Simulated assay, not measured.
Amino acid sequence: MINRKHVVRIAGCAAAVSAALGLLSIGAANADTFVPLPGGELTKTLSDGTVITVRLTDESANISPSMGATPVHRNAWVSGTASVQVSDNSSAPSVLLFPGYTVACQVNIAGGGVNGGVGGTVDYSDGQNVKPNVSANTGGNLSLGPGQATSFWVLDVEKADDYGREAHRHRNKIDGHSGSVTWADETIGLSGCGGYAQARAFISVELETDSVVTWTTLWGQPFSLG
């Protein structure tokens, strides 16, 4: 004789286990992905003999499912440290440090040229001297379609201008021959991209000595946003 109550209990337990496994699978699929990145280092000797070294260290990205929960939404938190060192043969150099990120939708930003329809333009033809044309200000809440790329600054330093009005600077001024700046959990929120998306850190340095003015850029390794 079949005990129907016993069968119902077994069926109920099986359904509960299946539901739990289903929730576990969903949770695993939506878990954050931590990506350690190698950073980089660039050394350049200027025409007056000044040596400048730019470093990107402690770089990482934490890729997370976007609140939009659709294939066209991506979300990441990025961290890193930018540092610069100038040789002592240059007396009282002027050094400005500009960290930022380039983000692209269905565009290869590992090399070649990138032209962003949103306004970000990057030309890698002269790798060390490339100067990103940053159309966004600060913060990485971006909207890009296929074939588009843009860049944004990490820093937003408030400082009064010459007339006492509030002004925003996107660089860190280095006092002396060396210095650094660190950022943690800077947001990259991307919407509108239905294909693969990438991002890449860059550290640009503007250096002025008694006889030379130069712009140098170090590029980090590209990483996938999904």
Rank of each mutant, 00 (worst) to 15 (best):
Y163E: 14
F202A: 01
V86W: 05
G194W: 03
H168T: 12
T81A: 05
L207N: 03
V205C: 08
N115T: 09
G119T: 02
Q85Y: 11
G192W: 09
A199D: 05
G80V: 08
G127I: 11
F98C: 00
L142R: 00
A197F: 01
G140Y: 09
T138I: 03
L190W: 06
S204H: 11
L144D: 07
L142G: 01
Q128L: 07
N89V: 08
V84W: 09
V134L: 10
G116M: 07
G195W: 00
P132W: 01
E186P: 04
C105P: 06
S87N: 05
E206P: 02
G192T: 07
G127Y: 13
I203P: 12
N89H: 07
V130E: 13
A110Q: 13
T121H: 08
A201L: 02
G194A: 12
G113K: 07
K173H: 04
Y196V: 05
D156I: 09
Q106A: 06
C105G: 01
L97R: 09
V103K: 02
A184S: 12
D162C: 08
K159T: 12
K159L: 12
T81S: 08
V95Q: 06
D185Q: 13
Q106G: 09
A201G: 05
V78A: 14
E166Q: 15
G127K: 14
V95W: 04
G119L: 03
P132L: 03
H170S: 07
A167N: 15
V130Y: 02
G111P: 04
K159P: 04
A197V: 11
V84G: 03
S94M: 07
Y196H: 10
N141V: 06
S151G: 13
E208L: 05
E166F: 12
G194R: 04
G113D: 10
S143F: 15
A82F: 01
L144G: 00
L155N: 15
A82V: 13
N75I: 06
G147P: 12
T187E: 14
G127C: 02
N133K: 08
E208V: 06
T138Q: 05
L190S: 03
A136D: 02
K131A: 12
V95R: 01
N75T: 05
S90W: 04
L190F: 04
A136N: 10
T150W: 11
G164A: 12
E206D: 09
E158W: 02
E166M: 15
G145M: 06
D88G: 00
P93V: 09
H170Y: 13
P93S: 02
S90G: 05
A197T: 11
D126H: 13
H170M: 10
V95D: 01
R165P: 04
F152N: 11
S135L: 03
S178L: 01
W183Y: 14
G179I: 12
R74F: 03
Y163C: 00
Y163H: 13
S125K: 09
S143P: 01
P93Y: 02
G111F: 03
T187R: 11
S125F: 08
A160T: 15
I109Y: 06
V130W: 05
